[in-house]
């Protein structure tokens, strides 16, 4: 199977969908000539031209709102917001218009748009370029939130999102773009709302997504060395959420650790924990543990940034606490 980078997987998904469907087009800041701040749209301008690969002004409201209007008028836009931190500028258009128009208008319209963005820490670019803001969007009815961790998932999920009739926030991770992975040459799609079981285990379940899913796997390896068998679930899509996959695992292990790169307070995983207690309280043998980012603006200094964001050793420690081995 061919091995490609995460950013190539994104680009290939876009190119394939643009070849398949003339309604699909790409717009955003630096997506055309530059090929995207993280090179995920490289080569698209050459193949599809200026009409379908559009460099925009630095206007997050207009980019997002124009995607809403174009989607309602029959196109399938894939708009890019360079950093998820800039979604603050696009918030109204995405959360008030994109998310709600279908419901408010009695189900008589659809808003088939994908808003691609990227988030996460790791490059020492501090508080305005390193956040994980997915919880804000999971909170809003009417939109889906997708956060792939591998090239395979990035491609299969992005293609699915482009074909879906709902507005979707597709959040990539800045530290994953150069990661390599196997991606089939032939076409495939990954359904929304299906988690990936990355590693089977019996003692504790670790649920995560995006880059933290990779750290969860790393933690599971360390735990294995200490004789602890951890099951690792990569959610892939936060909304719709594959709650059944989590419940099934918790039924087996009785212990749950939730790992996220977002701030601890109001974290999306708090909602996952609530859902698990609602449906599987009796299956739990220990309190649920969460491993999240510190409640501080992400600092620039590498030492501080590293301290703010969950590392594998913190996930290991949390897993041990659920087993009374802290």
């Amino acid at each position: 199977m061919p091995v490609i980078m995460y950013r190539e997987a994104i680009r290939d998904a876009l190119a394939e969908e643009m070849r398949r469907d003339p309604r699909v087009f790409v717009m955003g800041e630096d997506v055309a000539i530059y090929g995207g701040a993280y090179s995920a749209t490289q080569g698209l301008l050459k193949e599809f031209g200026e009409e379908r690969v559009r460099d925009t002004a630095i206007s997050e409201m207009a980019i997002t709102g124009a995607a809403v209007g174009a989607a309602m008028a029959g196109m399938r836009p894939v708009a890019e917001i360079m950093y998820v931190d800039f979604m603050t500028l696009a918030m109204d258009q995405f959360v008030n218009q994109a998310a709600k128009n279908r419901y408010m208008f009695g189900g008589k319209t659809t808003v088939p748009m994908v808003l691609r963005t990227e988030g996460g820490a790791g490059r020492c670019i501090a508080a305005h370029h390193s956040q994980s803001l997915e919880a804000w969007f999971v909170h809003a009815p009417g939109i889906f939130v997708v956060m792939p961790s591998t090239p395979y998932d990035a491609k299969g999920l992005l293609k699915t999102c482009i074909r879906d009739d709902n507005p979707i926030l597709f959040i990539e991770h800045k530290m994953l773009y150069n990661n390599k992975g196997e991606v089939p040459g032939e076409e495939y799609l990954i359904p929304l709302g299906k988690a990936a079981l990355r590693r089977e285990g019996t003692d504790v379940t670790i649920v995560s997504y995006s880059r933290m899913a990779l750290r969860a796997e790393e933690a599971a390896k360390q735990l294995a060395a200490e004789g602890i068998s951890a099951e690792v679930i990569d959610l892939r899509t936060l909304k719709p959420l594959d709650i059944d996959c989590i419940l099934e695992s918790v039924k087996k292990t009785g212990r749950l650790v939730l790992a996220s790169e977002a701030y601890k307070d109001g974290n999306f995983v708090c909602d996952v924990a609530m859902k698990v207690t609602e449906s599987a309280f009796d299956d739990l043998d220990a309190p649920i543990e969460r491993v999240c980012a510190a409640n501080v603006p992400v600092p620039m200094s590498p030492v501080l940034e590293d301290e703010a964001i969950p590392r594998a050793d913190k996930i290991v420690a949390a897993a041990k606490r659920t087993l009374g081995k802290a």
């Binding site: 379908r52 207009a62 997002t64 709102g65 124009a66 209007g69 836009p77 218009q97 319209t109």
Partner: peptide
């Protein structure tokens, strides 16, 4: 009619995007 909005100025980008669709179509 692509709809009314409770946000002042909220539909100006939406109308602009619909016009982009019209142009592309």
């Amino acid at each position: 009619n692509l709809g009314a909005t409770g946000i002042v100025g909220g539909n100006i980008p939406v109308g602009t995007g619909a016009a982009l669709a019209c142009k592309m179509q």
